[in-house]
Design a protein around this nucleic acid. Structure first.
Lengths: 245, 245
DNA sequence: CAAATTTGTCTATTAATCTAGACAACTACA
DNA sequence: TGTAGTTGTCTAGATTAATAGACAAATTTG
């Protein structure tokens, strides 16, 4: 197989890492769907213009991620790599949005507590700085695998028992309902992307260098008053976000 | 200064590269706006837990990018580089959305041509597969620096001269107007994140390992008929996207 | 069974990255 | 003027990344 795009040397990114990233993209694009496995390491080495051992390092990295599995004498088969899409609209709900794409969707409460609002949170919730807010951290799972981790902030004054309800019902939507708010709207969602930090990698079982999509959102009641602001990081390998007007 | 987050070793990304990436983000967040320059290399080294020479490699890389400039005896001053936010709403327009955040916003037409619609494009535009579509590729610039590259598809049947109008006016909005469509709406935007490929890095002058935000969008006329679908990749270092309902 | 294919392991060598320390060169400021 | 603070340069050594080759081990195929 001829060499496609040469790999970049002296870029600060090791060759095995560049190769792993490109193979990951190829898999996501469905390039090897016919055979279900990667070309032999020797061919990949020729294609990328590197030594076979360098390709082996890349494959070991992808195997660590759980994306491929190398079998001696057989080849390297593709194990996972399906991407889910979370719809973002005026009625964005985590579980409901992913429910029809997976057999199980759940969230796990990490911790919760009260603290005075930072300037940023106060601004977003339209309350005075230092007013108490409830902070809730949780991890989202799809089919048993973690795909997101998030921080949520609620004004204590209006929802004094929200943490208890979230713990009891396992759902923010149901917790709001229990607090007398049967419906709410997604006011805005700001999306950015960056490399995952150590904590995110731990919570979502990501490998170093993994990418997260960070969504900063504000939810309001039907009158437009903010009831929640949140910061959710999604594993970009597993989730994409779809905004619909 | 105490160490914040330790740098990651054996991740496939060299330490100087990680440090450069983090300093770039800090600059974009306005962390050093008060002084207009970076802390001394010795302090940065302590903060990241590495040797001063490693920090120097990172600063040399950022200087190469034109983001900072080191002056002997004086310090390392910040030359450019803040992050822009592109609002995504029903009336998303590239130039108008960024216009008030920068002194100059422009797009450069890379190429255009007609081709039969792929299955995906035909589905998005709600036309029959193999029907001709106009493909337009362009690069977006803010203050003279490239921040995005995009592919746009338009149905030839309805807008036969769109490519010519885009070339003449330099604007899709004005080209639509010239084709008899004074207004149109953003129907949906799907956002994902991944590492930039070689072509994206070339077009946007990104370094290896850079992250792109990819937005796949559909625009419709006021009756809801698709008039355009597009795939735009933004440099995640320079642009974030803000969805507003 | 035998040959071809493919991954796994081992050793050795070269190049790139990171650390460490010393000192020179330049700037700012009291 | 001279002293503190900062960047620039140099040497040396340790660690990591990449190349190269040979052969073992497992699977598939004829």
């Amino acid at each position: 197989m001829a060499q496609q795009k040469p790999v970049e040397r002296h870029s600060g990114v090791s060759l095995w890492r560049q190769i792993a990233d490109r193979i990951r993209v190829s898999i996501a694009d469905g390039e090897f769907r016919e055979t279900g496995r990667l070309p032999p390491a020797f061919d990949l080495a020729e294609r990328f213009g590197v030594n076979r051992h360098t390709v082996r390092a890349a494959l070991a990295f992808l195997a660590e991620e759980g994306l491929v599995e190398s079998i001696q004498g057989h080849g390297t088969v593709i194990v996972g790599g399906r991407q889910l899409t979370l719809p973002i609209s005026k009625r964005t709900r985590f579980s409901a949005g992913l429910g029809d794409q997976a057999s199980s969707v759940s969230t796990r409460l990490l911790r919760s507590g009260e603290l005075p609002a930072s300037l940023e949170v106060a601004t977003l919730l339209q309350i005075a700085p230092e007013q108490p807010v409830t902070e809730v951290e949780e991890v989202g799972y799809v089919d048993g695998r973690p795909v997101s981790c998030s921080q949520h902030f609620f004004p204590v004054e209006r929802f004094p028992d929200i943490a208890r309800h979230i713990a009891a019902t396992g759902s923010i939507t149901r917790a709001f309902a229990a607090c007398g708010l049967p419906d709410y709207l997604r006011h805005s969602t700001e999306v950015s992307a960056r490399h995952a930090d150590a904590r995110e990698r731990e919570l979502m079982q990501l490998s170093p260098g993994a990418i997260v999509l960070e969504a900063r959102a504000i939810n309001t009641d039907l009158e437009g008053r903010p009831v929640q602001c949140s910061r959710t990081r999604f594993s970009a390998d597993r989730i994409s976000l779809k905004m619909t007007a």
